[in-house]
């Protein structure tokens, strides 16, 4: 083999190895910083504890992040409730109905939406949506609902483009078979195309959920910050503190066990997002499996 090719191969290997190393180092660092507190209070107490009081003036500090885990899932699931029906409808329109000029306009609009930095969305949420919710629905304006709406806007383009791909990769033969049997286009979409694209769409939804749970900036600006469960538990107008907010809000002054507890929050966050990502990949794989 020529030396130049050999060198290229080595360089390629090195850059791949670097990427893996970086990920590994981040995980190791996260674990090293977070584990002391987890060991001290116990994983179960940490994850299920109701009380977050890291700088106790009198008595022992306590590190319970259960309300924040709930908050993270609340806003993420809320965003899905808004974004999934809209996103799938939009994807069906894009893939099956839109004429090519409309398709290209929409595609560009969606790309623009992806490009909006989350801090800008958060800012818009803060100055427009928070007062709007406060005036028309009540509460503080900082709320689960507000966070869900902002996250839905962020999740929408992702759901649309993955679902669009999934719908477009349904074999044309299925569509033709259905139409040739005298089914309408709409019936064909509902009974053949969407079921065939299901695993791709499910993957899109789970991925969107993982991203929503991991989203920080926009969320911290519009959901508020109390580290307690909403009261009553279903009150979506209550402010909450998702896990990401917890880290952002306190990292600037945390030291010792408190800092470690923030890293531990990061570990929990990381695990949740990783599990969702794995499920999403599994969903996509299973589609390949049945395709034959």
């Amino acid at each position: 083999m020529k030396t130049s090719e050999r060198i290229i191969e080595i360089l390629l290997f090195l850059s791949a190895a670097t990427a893996v190393m970086v990920v590994a180092l981040i995980i190791i660092f996260l674990l090293k910083e977070g584990i002391p507190v987890l060991a001290k209070v116990g994983v179960a107490n940490f994850c299920l504890g109701m009380n977050w009081n890291p700088i106790a003036i009198a008595g022992e500090p306590s590190y319970g992040i259960f309300p924040m885990i709930v908050a993270s899932f609340y806003v993420a699931i809320g965003s899905l409730i808004i974004a999934v029906p809209l996103g799938i409808t939009c994807a069906v329109f894009l893939a099956e109905i839109a004429p090519s000029w409309a398709r290209s306009i929409l595609k560009h609009a969606i790309e623009l939406l992806v490009g909006i930095p989350s801090v800008i969305l958060g800012f818009i949420g803060l100055v427009l949506l928070v007062p709007f919710i406060r005036d028309h629905f009540g509460g503080w304006g900082f709320s689960i609902l507000t966070g869900s709406i902002i996250l839905a806007i962020m999740a929408l383009p992702r759901i649309i483009s993955i679902s669009d791909d999934a719908i477009r990769s349904v074999p044309r033969e299925y569509k033709e078979a259905s139409l040739a049997l005298g089914a309408t286009h709409w019936h064909t979409i509902r009974k053949v195309i969407l079921p065939s694209a299901r695993s791709g769409i499910v993957a899109a939804v789970i991925l969107a959920m993982a991203t929503s749970i991991g989203e920080t900036m926009a969320v911290v600006m519009v959901t508020g910050s109390p580290s307690i469960l909403p009261d009553p538990i279903y009150d979506i107008l209550d402010p909450v503190r998702p896990m990401t907010s917890n880290i952002v809000l306190e990292m600037s002054y945390a030291t010792g066990d408190h800092a470690s507890a923030l890293f531990a929050t990061g570990i929990v966050l990381f695990v949740v997002v990783a599990v969702l990502n794995i499920i999403s990949h599994k969903a996509l794989k299973s589609k390949m499996g049945t395709r034959r």
């Binding site: 033969e173 299925y174 033709e176 078979a177 259905s178 040739a180 065939s196």
Partner: peptide
């Protein structure tokens, strides 16, 4: 059709 195309 040319290619058998049963629904999944």
């Amino acid at each position: 059709f040319q290619k058998p195309n049963p629904f999944p």
